[in-house]
Simulated scan of single mutants.
Amino acid sequence: MTTTPTLAYRNTPLHAAVAAAVARVLEAYDLEPDYLTGDGPSLAQMMGQGEIDIFATVWLPGEDEKFLSAAVEPLGCLYRPAFAFFVAERADSPLNGLTSVADVAASGAARHLITPESLLSHVRQMVAAYGLTEAGFTIETQPDEQAFSAIAAAVKSGEPVIAPLFSPCHLIHSLPLRPLDDPKKAGGNELEARLLISQAFRETADQDLVDELDELTLGNKVVSALDEAVRHLDMSPDEAAEEWQRGKLLPR
């Protein structure tokens, strides 16, 4: 069996922390993985060429179909990504009674939608489905990290912003945000974040290890907390994963 499997992930704090949590399982079987990171298209190509043993994670169905081939096998469901419009839970917020995107057009929400670049297509679909352009809403696209900072600043200042986000996300852990219902399903359905393992690794791996990877569950709250720990609590992905494993990442 391979003694140093290649464990790949997209180059974001969230994916790095999730990969570190997966590595904890490998280490329990005396496997010390070699980490590999990069952008999605490059990693998908490498996965198809057999250069990656384990990938953490693909979002299926729909988002990451490019990773799938006869050479790989999906495992488990570590968490459930979902796109939504979020609003802040604040005692003085004019949006406290707002529960659905269907009512956003008639609400007192700020008319600019601070939008991370990677979520632009999802926001456009939501805006079109609910007639938000006609209600005066504009899409303010920014690089992801810049948009996250702008959303956080707006929420903390009390501005009644609509925050377009995928859950899990560090902002959902650190800010009092709640998702709005999306009756038209314009933002898409809930996805499954799954591991991919290469067939070559599958053939040589201990069956107990494969079973444990298949059963590994983190959940959205844990992944949001991992993301926050790496971004803002000065933890490395490995340190954050260790806190999770010891049950110290979330309040009991």
Rank of each mutant, 00 (worst) to 15 (best):
I162Y: 06
R10V: 04
T141D: 11
A56C: 07
E242V: 12
M47Y: 06
I52S: 02
G48S: 10
V104Q: 08
E89S: 11
T99L: 02
R178D: 05
K66V: 13
E192V: 02
K248G: 05
P41A: 13
H15D: 11
Q125N: 15
S69I: 05
R178G: 00
V123R: 01
A71H: 14
H122K: 13
V18K: 01
L98Y: 03
L68G: 10
A135I: 07
P94L: 02
S167K: 07
A19Q: 06
K66M: 14
A44K: 11
L171K: 08
E212N: 12
G76E: 03
A186Q: 08
K156Q: 15
D30S: 15
E65C: 02
V161C: 07
S93R: 09
A70C: 05
A110R: 13
A71D: 15
A193L: 02
R80S: 11
E203M: 14
D39R: 15
Y9E: 04
L14C: 02
G247E: 13
D92Y: 09
F83V: 05
V210Q: 01
P41K: 12
M46N: 12
F55A: 05
L196W: 03
P61K: 10
E190T: 15
G40C: 10
T4H: 12
G48H: 10
A109I: 09
L113T: 04
Q49V: 05
P33F: 03
E190N: 07
V72F: 05
L68Q: 11
E242K: 11
M47F: 07
L249M: 09
L180Q: 10
E243R: 15
A102K: 07
R90A: 12
A8M: 08
D39G: 09
R90M: 06
D34R: 15
M47W: 08
L31K: 06
L226A: 00
G97M: 01
D144W: 00
A193K: 02
L43E: 14
L165M: 04
L120T: 15
L119G: 00
P237D: 03
V25H: 06
K221H: 13
R124C: 09
D238N: 03
L180Y: 05
L119P: 00
T37Y: 08
E140S: 13
A229I: 00
T6C: 03
P94I: 06
S224P: 02
A21F: 00
G247C: 12
A241I: 04
P61Q: 08
A154K: 08
G62V: 06
E159Y: 01
L78G: 01
D211R: 15
A129Q: 08
L233G: 02
K221F: 02
R24L: 15
T3K: 11
E190V: 14
E242A: 13
E228T: 09
R194Q: 15
V127N: 09
A16G: 06
A186K: 01
T4P: 02
T115H: 04
E65M: 04
P41F: 04
R231S: 01
